[in-house]
Simulated assay, not measured.
Amino acid sequence: MITNAEAYLKEYKGLIDRALVKKIEAIQTTQKLKEAMLYSVKAGGKRLRPILLMAVVETLGKDPMLGLDPGCSLEMLHTYSLIHDDLPAMDDDDLRRGMPTNHIVFGEATAILAGDGLLTQAFECLAQASGLTNDQKIELIQLLANASGPEGMVAGQSDDLESEDQKLSIEDLERIHRRKTGRLLEYAVEAGAVIAHCDDQVRHHLKMYARHLGIAFQIKDDLLDVEGDAAVIGKPIGSDAEKGKNTYPSLLTVEGAKAQLKEHFEKALRSLRLAGLQVGILDELARYIIVRDH
């Protein structure tokens, strides 16, 4: 059955895919570097982060197209993180979304540079975003740098690598994933609030919605690594356990992880109610995250 979220994701994914390719193809750089950047951008993905950003803008009564450039910026940065995460020095993955990873196709050096290129291009894209004031751009740049840098996603990846083959508490695992996975999802929602000029109280509750959504997203990923279909998720099942990674199922059992998934989902929806927002696409996207198969 096609849900509202699936239809919404499909429509906006096409819009974002086209905009991303157009922006990267316009870059004046060496052909191999551009090919490597485009390879990972075109490798698929749900585009959940930029779609969440645009959905928040729309939910708050503004034109969702105001979120397109910031959304493309966010997806460039997210794609850089995936390229670097897959490198031999990091997670050492050969497959991403069922395709050879960037370093397998282009070599490690070019993969690193492709990631670097996407990271820096993300901030240029954000600085040039159309329809936003300079004050909004400055705030978004600061928020994105904080969410993705040494206080956010990068710290989460560092902690994740250091914790391999160590037994973590569930509190430690959640702290890692709030940074590694959750901070960019939080940024997506908070950026939508900045673009829509919403008040501080609504913005706070939206941020709490995103925080619980980020943990739910990671728990679902961990469950798919145990129960998913390798042909659908695009990587071997059980790869996390093979690498000695701490996951929610490994610490809580599969049933315990599912209980935590449900709890964070319900807390995310409660935060939307506290924000005074009507049931709509943000509810649907949260439901999609917990029932998706990839």
Results as ranks from 00 to 15, higher is better:
Phe265Thr: 08
Ser271Gln: 02
Ala188Ile: 09
Thr3Phe: 05
Gly214Phe: 02
His84Ser: 06
Lys207Glu: 07
His103Gly: 05
Leu213Gln: 05
Thr253Ala: 12
Glu151Asp: 07
Val189Ala: 06
Leu66Asp: 06
Leu252Gln: 07
Leu144Ile: 04
Lys32Asn: 01
Glu58Met: 06
Ala231Thr: 03
Leu285Lys: 12
Asn4Trp: 13
Leu66Tyr: 12
Gly45Ser: 05
His78Gln: 15
Ala36Gly: 01
Ser40Lys: 00
Tyr80Gln: 02
Gly238Lys: 01
Arg175Thr: 09
Ser239Ala: 15
Asp63Thr: 05
Leu20Met: 03
Ala193Thr: 00
Leu38Ile: 04
Glu174Asp: 09
Thr133Asp: 04
Val105His: 04
His103Ala: 08
Arg287Trp: 15
Asp165Leu: 07
Leu143Phe: 11
Leu274Ile: 07
Val279Gln: 03
Glu284Gln: 14
Leu33Glu: 10
His264Ser: 04
Met76Asn: 07
Ala111Asp: 08
Asp116Val: 14
Thr253Pro: 10
Ile51Arg: 00
Leu20Arg: 00
Glu151Cys: 05
Asp17Thr: 01
Gly117Ile: 10
Tyr209Lys: 03
His264Ala: 00
Cys72Ala: 04
Met153Ile: 05
Glu162Tyr: 11
Asp159Ser: 11
Arg273Pro: 03
Ser73Gly: 14
Ala7Arg: 14
Asp172Gln: 11
Ala231Cys: 00
Thr120Met: 13
Tyr288Asp: 12
Glu164Val: 10
Lys22Leu: 03
Ile112Gly: 06
Phe106Ser: 03
Lys32Gln: 13
Gln166Glu: 14
Gly156Ala: 06
Lys22Arg: 06
Ala286Gly: 11
